[in-house]
Design a protein around this nucleic acid. Structure first.
Lengths: 206, 206
DNA sequence: TCTTTTTTTAACTAATTAGTTAAACTGTTT
DNA sequence: AAACAGTTTAACTAATTAGTTAAAAAAAGA
């Protein structure tokens, strides 16, 4: 073990995991370092030893939380597939990534509401890469005469906005006892979003 | 003047307006009462006199912020119109309401990320009424054989999620200087969302 | 105009919060 | 085994935060 010991990496990871959950649930200001220490069983000074400050901890959490999102989504897209399959794969992969890590959409929404001022550059870049990947699909579809022209940002917002809102609202929807039938699973939601977007963009015969 | 004086209603309104902006920007925990007092030029004790507590102030702000949203949207729908026009009017009215009051989508997103735990019942009811109004349109469209079957919640999430995310991300998008052409106006976004959803739901000839 | 009620104020309070210190403990290297 | 480096700890600190008090000021009512 050279720079980082086993113990230290375990402690740091434990802190980071708990902190990510708290930041997603309570926001930056609502996450209290004493509570985080209590939650992890780690002494508060250890947190400062490993991460330097609350802000430093936040940035580490965000960097990890958003790292790989774009990779996962872009990796799910096979360029030789039809643009419809590419689009479908994009939506499904984003949905899966967000569902597997609900802290990500929650933080994304908080950061957007705060004008992204605490969002590290690396996280922003991940979002940019998503938009660019989607743009590539849409442009190809338009070029082949299969998809209608549309602003990539519109489609991006519809995918990210709807699925993020759906996923983070799960606890709230579960609490609404008067509308049990109104709720749907993430798989169903994803498929419906995907179908609607594909049908909405598909060039139809006139 | 009986229960509430002119001066008191002016002061309370001034506090509430400034507080709403701050809650939307910084969240509940990030909004500091001393700063709110400084921003309004009102003594902090006056805030407590009028609203009782920070939580009481928050609830007053939220109640006002969300009041009328459903009314505005539902009022924009003419039941004798085609379901496409109804849908279009729904989307346009929500977009306008959110754009005119960007604090609303910002708070909505924050509250969703926090499982809505600080969201007053009245605000929740407004959202429920929106979903119900949309459900009515979709069911009518399906009954008439004009719209494909789809879960109202899916469409609701797509409208609210995409437009809210778009509107609150405006400051962030403006800050991204390397993609000026990638941005679009709210009118264009609204129209594209509306067209895509309508085309995506439209029953086509086989 | 006087009395009552409402509102605002300056100053204060107790609790909370992010962060710090230096010693003790643990792990690594020679 | 000793020296060095890394990590954790208990206790502490200064600043901040939500909230309070009682008097002064303003507004309303008779």
């Amino acid at each position: 073990m050279s720079e980082i010991t086993k113990k230290s990496s375990k402690t740091a990871a434990l802190i980071q995991e708990a902190a990510t959950n708290m930041f997603a649930t309570y926001g930056f200001d609502g996450t209290i370092m004493d509570e985080l220490a209590a939650k992890t069983g780690v002494n508060k000074a250890s947190i400062y030893y490993h991460f330097g400050s609350k802000q430093g901890l936040y940035e580490a959490c965000m960097t990890t939380l958003f790292s790989g999102v774009a990779n996962q989504v872009l990796a799910a897209i096979a360029p030789q597939d039809s643009v419809f399959d590419q689009l479908s794969a994009f939506i499904a992969a984003f949905s899966q990534a967000a569902y597997k890590s609900p802290n990500m959409p929650a933080v994304l929404m908080r950061e957007m509401a705060s004008s992204g001022k605490n969002m590290p550059k690396s996280a922003r870049q991940q979002m940019q890469r998503l938009l660019f990947g989607l743009k590539t699909i849409l442009e190809e579809g338009e070029r082949k005469g299969l998809l209608k022209p549309i602003q990539p940002l519109t489609v991006h917002m519809m995918i990210v906005g709807s699925l993020s809102l759906y996923i983070v609202s799960e606890p709230l929807r579960r609490g609404i006892a008067d509308a049990p039938q109104a709720d749907i699973s993430v798989a169903e939601m994803t498929e419906e979003v995907s179908n609607l977007i594909q049908n909405g963009l598909k060039v139809t015969e006139k």
